[in-house]
Design a protein around this nucleic acid. Sequence first.
DNA 1: TTACTGTTGATATAAATTTAGCAAATTTAA
DNA 2: TTAAATTTGCTAAATTTATATCAACAGTAA
Lengths: 218, 218
Amino acid sequence: MKNRENIPKATIERLPLYYRCLDKMDTFEDIDVVSSKDLGGKLDIPSTQVRKDLSYYGEFGRRGVGYNVNELKKSVGKILGVDRMWPAILVGAGNLGHALVNYKSFSMMGFEIACVLDNDPAKIGNMINGKKVQDIKNIDKIVAETDIKLGVIAVPTDAAQVVADEMIDSGIKAIWNFAPTRLRVPPEIEVKNEDLAVGIVSLIYHLSWQEEMETKGE
Amino acid sequence: MKNRENIPKATIERLPLYYRCLDKMDTFEDIDVVSSKDLGGKLDIPSTQVRKDLSYYGEFGRRGVGYNVNELKKSVGKILGVDRMWPAILVGAGNLGHALVNYKSFSMMGFEIACVLDNDPAKIGNMINGKKVQDIKNIDKIVAETDIKLGVIAVPTDAAQVVADEMIDSGIKAIWNFAPTRLRVPPEIEVKNEDLAVGIVSLIYHLSWQEEMETKGE
DNA sequence: TTACTGTTGATATAAATTTAGCAAATTTAA
DNA sequence: TTAAATTTGCTAAATTTATATCAACAGTAA
């Protein structure tokens, strides 16, 4: 395996796609062996890209044959770290928080929201999908007792930095941030921004341009 | 301006960040002029990158001075197409659907969910943030009457392709897909996959590796 | 005025990422 | 057994993207 430092970020974002696809083939489609061409075909990724991505981590296939689906799934799962569960605390019991707690496709990716926290007395004590919303004031105790490393921020923009600071104080090591703002964190803390507005705007950008072209054409 | 075709995708994803930042400066912070260094500083983006991104679309600054905040905001807004509203239909009145309808930060990005649809009789007729959930059967009529171009898929994975097909039949031109699956669509239809699991897995990947390093070190 | 500082936008350079080409390995069929 | 068809994984080439450099321009202070 090459130095983990210089593996393309894009590769790391394709691995979960491979993983999910392999899981589907393994669990539901009863497929034993797959070629890079077939796997890529399902995901609109060139076969050369698939092979290159995997080759960063080792040799998983057999020449002239392809990849064993179950084996490759396990290998990719281990590379990604999803061969175990990673419990998280979620701060923000609003609409988005509800949606995340109830999201079905996380557990197969090793992700599970174990605790839900909020600072709103009206929300504290409510049940969300079997979990009681707890007071953010107890974050230190909760993180210490559960040894949770992952935090999810689903609060309004204004509150995001404060929540991030509290998370880091409590011992959280990585933050998944849904608030549309950049968080200031120490360098050892990993942050992943999930900025929903960016997604929709890139779609609007293309749509807007398409429409402009059509108008000119007429 | 250069050919719009070969502008980096990453540039297009940074433009909304600039836009939001400029809007904040313009509306709340009363800042008139900003340099690429300052703008980039707020977003952890090098000033050279900021200037390069903007230079794809024209010359917006003054040498020795910087950029006029209000003007640049308007220019970037126009480039992105967010200088007008883009209404969308949302299919899927579940938890995620609720969260999207109630999401606050969309309107400043030109995005608005105008209609909510579902196929579940238990949900049809319910109100979500002032909008009545309508029967998916009426999608053709709704899209034709409203001339909506954007569709959002927030249904379970199994139903996503069917919904996409219905959307395309009804006249939808661009799809924002939250289901963790690749949609098969004609080439003229724009699709943006918002795959939440990919985001969290890339965080788990780093966390998992970090932990492995620590274990070795001890 | 003149020097000095700051800033853009263009061009050049470097780095990162993707794609192509091919030898080696495997299977299948003649 | 031999030839043909697949398919991997390595290396090289091409492409894309990011970063550095610098002349031209604008403001400021001596």
